[in-house]
């Protein structure tokens, strides 16, 4: 989703606002994994878990590891002031934000970056 607004307020003053918003979500459904069927006649490793059940693996929560959810917003608010016919001053604030709702593999990626800018533009 994005929104851009540009307005020339007066002959000298103008402002603009740009923003882009992205919300992403992904997940797996849960799944059922039956215990392996091992006949009693088969000799199994002494390390094999589970005693008589011959299987103690639990996959009931594995789908939770796949959940990903990000909210990302980028926006810039800028103002411009015309100082001469072909020259203007400008200033802007840019904000980039990520909210990591379900941190997982890469740790918590939530954070923000700001840029504050000032300058002059000339056309000729």
């Amino acid at each position: 989703m994005f929104l851009n607004v540009t307005q020339e307020m007066t002959d000298k003053w103008g402002w603009s606002f740009d923003t882009a918003i992205a919300y992403s979500k992904g997940n797996f459904d849960s799944f059922f994994l039956p215990e392996p069927a091992i006949p009693d006649s088969v000799t199994i490793s002494p390390d094999y878990p589970g005693g008589s059940s011959k299987g103690a693996y639990d996959f009931s929560e594995i789908q939770d590891y796949s959940d990903l959810e990000y909210l990302q917003i980028e926006g810039t608010l800028g103002v411009r002031y015309q100082i001469k016919a072909r020259s203007s001053l400008y200033g802007s604030v840019t904000w980039m934000m990520t909210e990591d709702v379900k941190p997982y593999v890469y740790g918590d990626l939530s954070g923000a970056v700001w840029y504050y800018a000032l300058g002059m533009t000339s056309t000729f």
Binding site: Y70, T98, Y106, S110, G111, A112, V113, W114, Y116
Partner: peptide, 11 residues
């Protein structure tokens, strides 16, 4: 001038 808070890698 650039500034940041928390983790700037993804933002």
């Amino acid at each position: 001038y650039g500034d940041f808070s928390d983790n700037p890698q993804k933002a």
